[in-house]
C-alpha cells in the first residue's frame, strides 16, 4: 500500500464516525426544531413557530436568566479566588505540593456527589449554625427559598471547580521569569502596582483560558443542580441543559426543545468566539 493510502485509511473511518455521531445529530436537531415532534409518533413541519414561542415562554426565559446569572457570577468568583490562591500557593509557602494536592481534590469528585454533600450542609448544618448565632437569613435552608437557592449552587460549583482555575494560574505564574520582579522591586514598585502592571498582563493568556473554559462549563451546568435542588424551588434553578433534558425527553416537547437547543448552541458559540476575540487582543507578549 502506498503512503498516501495508509494515511487515508488512518483518517477516513474516524472522520466518518465523527460525522455520523456529531454532525448528523447537529443537523437532525435543527430539522426537528422545525417540527411539532413529541419525541414519538407522527409529526409535521411547522416552520419557525417553535422559535417564536421560545421568546415568550416564561419557563424558557427564566432558565436562561438563571443559567446566565449563575454562569457569570460563578466565573467571576472562581477567577478572583483562583488568582488569589494561585499567588499564595506560588509564593514561599510551606508544604506547597501538599496544599496543591488538597485544593485540587474536589475536582476529581463527581459533580452529583459533591451536590449531595452540599445539599446536606445547606439543609441541616448551615441552618443550625444560623440558629446558634441568631442569624435569621441562615436559620432556614438557602436551597428552600426561590430567591437564594441559586447562591447555593454558585457556592457548590465554585468549591468544586476553583481547583482548575488555581492550577491554570499557577502554571501561568511559573512562566513569568523572577528577574522581572527583582527589577520592579529595585525601581521601587509597590506589590499592588507590580501585580497590575506586570503579573496580571503576563497572566492574560491564562486568564483567557480560564474565562472561556469556566464560562462554557458553567453554561452547561447539570449534575450539581440535579443533586442540590432538582431545578426548584418553583423552577428557580432550572438550567437550560436541565430544561432540554426534562421537557425534551419526557415532557412531549421534543421539537420545541430542539429549537431551544439550537438557540442555546448559537449563544454558546457566540460567547466563546467573542471572549477569544476580545481577550486575545489585550494579551501581551513578553
Amino acid at each position: 500500500m502506498s503512503r498516501k493510502k495508509i494515511f487515508l485509511l488512518m483518517t477516513v473511518p474516524l472522520v466518518v464516525i465523527f460525522f455520523l455521531f456529531d454532525t448528523v445529530p447537529l443537523l437532525t436537531g435543527f430539522v426537528y426544531s422545525l417540527t411539532n415532534s413529541k419525541g414519538f409518533g407522527t409529526f409535521r413541519f411547522i416552520g419557525l413557530s417553535n422559535y417564536f414561542r421560545l421568546f415568550t415562554d416564561g419557563s424558557v426565559l427564566s432558565s436562561y436568566w438563571f443559567t446566565f446569572k449563575f454562569a457569570v457570577v460563578t466565573t467571576v468568583v472562581v477567577n478572583v479566588i483562583g488568582i488569589l490562591l494561585a499567588l499564595a500557593l506560588n509564593s514561599n509557602v510551606k508544604f506547597k505540593t501538599f496544599f496543591r494536592g488538597i485544593y485540587f481534590l474536589p475536582y476529581v469528585l463527581g459533580g452529583l456527589i459533591v451536590g449531595y454533600i452540599f445539599n446536606y450542609i445547606f439543609t441541616f448544618m448551615l441552618p443550625s449554625v444560623g440558629k446558634a448565632l441568631g442569624w435569621v437569613f441562615l436559620s432556614s435552608s438557602i436551597l428552600g427559598n426561590a430567591n437564594t437557592a441559586w447562591t447555593g449552587i454558585v457556592i457548590t460549583v465554585a468549591w468544586q471547580s476553583v481547583a482548575f482555575n488555581i492550577l491554570i494560574y499557577i502554571s501561568g505564574l511559573q512562566t513569568i521569569p523572577t528577574d522581572i520582579y527583582e527589577a520592579a522591586k529595585m525601581d521601587g514598585s509597590s506589590s499592588w502596582n507590580t501585580f497590575w502592571t506586570i503579573t496580571f498582563p503576563l497572566l492574560a493568556p491564562f486568564f483567557t483560558i480560564n474565562l472561556v473554559v469556566s464560562m462554557r462549563n458553567f453554561l452547561m451546568v447539570f449534575d450539581q443542580i440535579m443533586s442540590l435542588t432538582g431545578g426548584g424551588p418553583a423552577s428557580s434553578t432550572t438550567s437550560i441543559s436541565m430544561l432540554i433534558y426534562q421537557n425534551g425527553l419526557s415532557g412531549n416537547q421534543f421539537g420545541y426543545q430542539s429549537a431551544n437547543s439550537v438557540i442555546y448552541f448559537i449563544i454558546i458559540v457566540a460567547i466563546s468566539v467573542f471572549q477569544l476575540k476580545v481577550l486575545n487582543k489585550r494579551e501581551v507578549q513578553l
Partner: peptide, 27 residues
C-alpha cells in the same frame, strides 16, 4: 484535505452536549 479535517474536528469543541442530546437518543 487533512488541514480541513483538523479544523472540522477541533471546531466541534464548541458544540454543547445538550444540543446533540435529543437527536442522539433517537439515533
Amino acid at each position: 484535505f487533512y488541514r480541513w479535517t483538523y479544523y472540522y474536528l477541533v471546531s466541534a469543541m464548541f458544540v454543547p452536549f445538550s444540543m446533540l442530546m435529543l437527536p442522539l437518543v433517537k439515533q
